[in-house]
Design a protein around this nucleic acid. Structure first.
Lengths: 281, 281
DNA sequence: TAGCAACTTGAATCTACCG
DNA sequence: CCGGTAGATTCAAGTTGCT
């Protein structure tokens, strides 16, 4: 098992080759249930839990006992109703021995368009936080945000039902110089994350914006720790890990995605090497 | 059964006296599960579903077939874990014949203070939307919001304790002509509501801001329709109904709350009568 | 070069229609 | 009648290109 490497294959089989207690954080966005079988990894909603459980069994084995497992997921609407497979998955994971420690909300600022007679556009997803034990590593100071400084507060496209506070330069820049914020008041965030969805950047699209894994990586790991994403996709979790000076390991089923991710990550590693100077990563 | 009246008693028994298909909307925030029995209606989390189901059976009977049932609820953390009684309640309500049509998120901007080693402050609650059939009344135009009108942004809502992270601080104006306030546009909201969590009333627990029931009342009823809140508390749902020219019916177990609500509502009715002029409500 | 305007595209979901 | 696909709807960012 090598750090900063992507393994090609189904995470059910690849993860089985990893030793126990290897990872500080497992952060992933599995393929969402989809009735259309032709898409990437489309799993029928009715079989989703059954498909997921053997994989999460491996995750539990290879996660350190004080590590965290973050699962970004959202149920689809089927026949006019929200499907219950995510609820059933939470219950099943507890049966498997996981603790359902918290449910964070990712509020997406750019949901998919559309209009229907029975619902509005869906602009939030669950980030379920599971742990193996009640006490686990959590570095709350690493994600504190600045308050005040009204000059920097930017608000756009706000309506009375969708009032959102925008705080500039809280954390967007990687390698930000925190000493610039000396004297500013820092407070802890809540369990609602307000991130814009990442749009297509030069052709490839990511399931979530890099800020999402970056936030949990900062919250639950220290520099040098190892983050696993067993559904690596285009490698956004790996990008975030490198940006935060953590190591990553990715597992991805589709060779095309592995090549895509390797391309993104090698460029990123080069960039960070240059930033640090002569010291490689 | 009289409109704009509060019934004293447990909704299990009071609702049983109401005729079928009487309400256009049932909007309520039931007593949350609580291990401490001394507070208002404290129900043990492990018995919550069993306690709720006979009541929701009545709700289903007295709700019109094209009506909606909005349940504002959030699970507590017990022994370091989120309790699963809300998940189990959703599953049980579906078993009872309800359709779980949508889950709205109420993002509270002023969550309860506090700090714990394993979680952040909880700043969101579920607003579960249940219906009796796939097709139901929904007046989306009634809750449209303006965009691009910076003048209407209410800065007073910004509080020091409310931190919303916003990553994309590119301030490019995506096609909006900021100098042209005349051409403001109305768009539909999403399924995330941003409302202040402050309660203007005192001396009781478990209250939501009036904007929360008002939003769902506008969305799912027309003026003159009837809204039921079977856990009336201090009567915020009734206040919202009156403000939106709907009728309400409240059921409340505690006599003190009934008196409190009657006081608030009679004053409100007077005020609205004056606003409308000589026409009473 | 800054600023605007036009264009493009999403982890969507419903209804209608076909075989 | 069931299952699958096509079409319509919708808006915030990023991208491109022009002045």
């Amino acid at each position: 098992m090598n750090r900063n490497q992507i393994y090609l294959g189904d995470c059910l089989e690849v993860a089985a080759t990893f030793p126990n207690d290897s990872f500080d954080l497992i952060m992933t966005s599995p393929p969402y249930a989809d009735q259309r079988k032709n898409t990437y990894g489309g799993i029928d909603p009715d079989n989703y839990v059954e498909w997921f459980l053997p994989r999460s069994e491996q995750f539990k084995r290879i996660l350190k006992s004080d590590g965290s497992f973050i699962l970004n997921i959202k149920e689809k609407a089927v026949n006019g109703e929200r499907h219950t497979y995510v609820l059933n998955l939470i219950l099943a994971l507890r049966q498997q021995g996981w603790l359902w420690t918290e449910e964070y909300i990712w509020h997406k600022r750019t949901p998919m368009p559309g209009k229907w007679p029975n619902r509005f556009r869906d602009s939030w997803e669950r980030c379920l936080h599971f742990t193996k034990q009640r006490q686990f590593k959590m570095y709350q100071d690493a994600v504190m945000v600045r308050v005040g400084d009204w000059k920097d507060i930017r608000m756009r496209t706000l309506g009375e039902n969708d009032i959102v506070r925008h705080e500039s330069d809280t954390n967007s820049g990687f390698g930000i110089n925190k000493s610039n914020f000396a004297g500013r008041e820092m407070v802890y965030p809540t369990n609602v994350l307000h991130l814009s969805g990442e749009t297509t950047n030069q052709g490839h699209s990511a399931a979530f914006p890099i800020e999402l894994p970056a936030w949990f990586i900062k919250l639950f790991t220290l520099p040098g720790d190892v983050v696993l994403d067993p559904f690596f996709g285009s490698g956004t979790t790996g990008m975030a890990a490198l940006a935060e000076s953590r190591d990553f390991i990715g597992i991805e089923k589709l060779a095309a995605n592995v090549r895509l991710a390797e391309g993104r990550l090698s460029k990123a590693q080069l960039r960070f090497s240059e930033m640090v100077g002569t010291v490689g990563i």
